[in-house]
Simulated assay, not measured.
Amino acid sequence: MKRSIETLKENLMKIRTGRAHTGLLEHITVDYYGCPTPISQVAQLGLADARTITVQPWEKKMVAVVEKAIRNSDLGLNRLAKSFAFRCHPLTEERRRDLTKVVRSEGEETKVAIRNLRRDANNKVAALVKEKEISEDDERRSNTEIQKLTDKYIGEVDKLIAEKEKEIMTV
């Protein structure tokens, strides 16, 4: 369940909010001599200001390849004129609403994963009862504990989703 929460956090970081951060580019891969490579391994990523990401490839040959990968990523980043920096544009109200839908669906996927883990744990406990390794009282206690854990992690998902939605809707 903790891994599900960590995965959700990583996925939410990739959702753009109008502010620049290097995490926006983490999932982009470039063709590095025929091998798909994460952009962070072929270039230095940094922030010039709150809305500008700087990308400095370590090899001159890679400048065009990195620029093409960023352009094709559909992140809505534009290259600034004389430098190798990209500017994040402010989001429109319609785009903000679309992003909140994406955030909610990410949260729902995480909740489903947590519920599936609960089901698997309950099935294992039921199998132990069937094999007479634990009593029915132990089964009830275990199911209660499993439900408490599930509620705790689903509450954490709800909290993360609410924070991200607030961040997206803030102009």
Rank of each mutant, 00 (worst) to 15 (best):
I146E: 01
A127L: 13
I70R: 03
R141A: 14
E67R: 04
A113L: 14
L75G: 07
A43Y: 00
E10Y: 07
R119C: 01
F86E: 01
D49T: 08
V171N: 13
V103I: 15
L47P: 04
R119Y: 03
R79V: 00
E167K: 12
L160I: 08
V42T: 09
A64D: 10
C88L: 11
T54W: 00
R104F: 09
E167F: 04
N123Q: 15
I5Q: 02
K132P: 00
P57D: 01
E139Y: 05
A85G: 05
D137C: 07
G155H: 07
R141T: 14
I161K: 06
I114T: 09
E59L: 13
R79N: 00
L75H: 07
H89A: 15
L149V: 10
T170W: 03
T22V: 15
G46E: 01
V102F: 01
H89C: 09
R140D: 09
K152M: 11
N143Y: 07
R87N: 12
R95G: 01
K159W: 04
N11D: 14
N72A: 14
E108T: 13
R96K: 14
L77H: 08
H27I: 03
K2D: 05
R95F: 00
E108D: 15
I154T: 10
V65N: 06
A85H: 02
L45R: 05
E109D: 15
S4H: 13
E133F: 07
G23W: 02
W58L: 13
D31L: 00
E136C: 03
